[in-house]
């Protein structure tokens, strides 16, 4: 059983997944940020691999990616930083990024290195299910990694079920049709989350996009297994003198 599956066996409610950008705010912040997230009750860590053209992201995460790239972050350097991180971090870790840098690194080499250092799963929002089924899914499975698809309020029932079937670990329910960090209201998502609940999916559901405080976290958790916070946390790290303190202060307002 994967580390992510084990987590959801032990915890069904209010699972907190926090997104951070690798190499942000400083090149060598990656590990300290991850350690502080674990220390402050994050159940999962979603580690973003910076990309020059992050289509699904709003301005805040784009900016953190641009800074990380300026800091010199690359996939190769990230795997160097992650070498041996399992000695210090026990929570599941997911790599999130876009196809182009992963293809350039070599898809299989990427999966092999991710599995070797102790990464548990992948989110690649621009890897479509056709290519997943015909080409990449087998490679991901070969290295024992979970793969998490996204669904949105606009995703039709049959498609939600299909993407759930293809996913392992959890299913990522995007709260509204938007890029990350949008201000669309959370209360309108209850119908959608209840609808997902009624499908009796095989995977747990985590809600992301627009989760920024306790209120939105509570709203997301009402009809899902937990939620994902990204933009609000990146904002909290902006200009922080000490990532540990910033993380502690931020997460104390959520859980």
């Amino acid at each position: 059983m994967s580390r992510i599956q084990t987590l959801f066996q032990q915890k069904h409610k209010r699972v907190l997944n926090v997104y951070c950008t690798a190499g942000y705010p400083e090149l060598n912040s990656t590990l300290p940020v991850m350690e502080s997230l674990q220390a402050n009750r994050a159940d999962l860590i979603e580690l973003g691999m910076p990309y020059s053209d992050p289509l699904a992201d709003g301005p805040v995460i784009q900016q953190s990616s641009a800074i990380a790239l300026e800091n010199g972050m690359t996939i190769a350097r990230l795997f160097e930083q992650l070498e041996g991180f399992r000695d210090r971090i026990t929570v599941p870790v997911i790599l999130m990024g876009y196809m182009n840098p992963v293809l350039q690194y070599g898809f299989e080499r990427f999966c092999a290195d991710a599995a070797r250092v102790g990464v548990d799963g992948l989110i690649l929002p621009d890897l479509p299910e056709y290519e997943f089924e015909t080409e990449y899914g087998a490679i991901i499975r070969k290295y024992g990694l979970d793969f998490i698809f996204l669904v949105t309020p606009e995703t039709a029932e049959q498609r939600v079920k299909k993407l759930d079937k293809l996913s392992s670990g959890f299913l990522y329910a995007v709260s509204s049709s938007s890029t990350t960090g949008s201000n669309k209201q959370m209360n309108s998502v209850q119908d959608y989350l209840q609808r997902l609940e009624s499908y009796q999916l095989k995977n747990p559901v985590l809600v992301g996009f627009g989760i920024k405080d306790r209120e939105s976290f509570d709203a997301a958790c009402a009809h899902a297994n937990g939620a994902i916070i990204g933009t609000a946390y990146i904002k909290a790290l902006e200009g922080a003198k000490d990532v540990g303190t910033a993380t502690k202060e931020f997460l104390s307002t959520i859980v």
Partner: peptide
């Protein structure tokens, strides 16, 4: 360019070794 993904399709893309456009 090298094979890559830009703006929703796989094609030839001018990019760095690290896959940044």
């Amino acid at each position: 360019g090298k094979p890559g993904v830009l703006h929703g399709s796989k094609s030839l893309v001018m990019q760095t070794e690290d896959g940044q456009v």
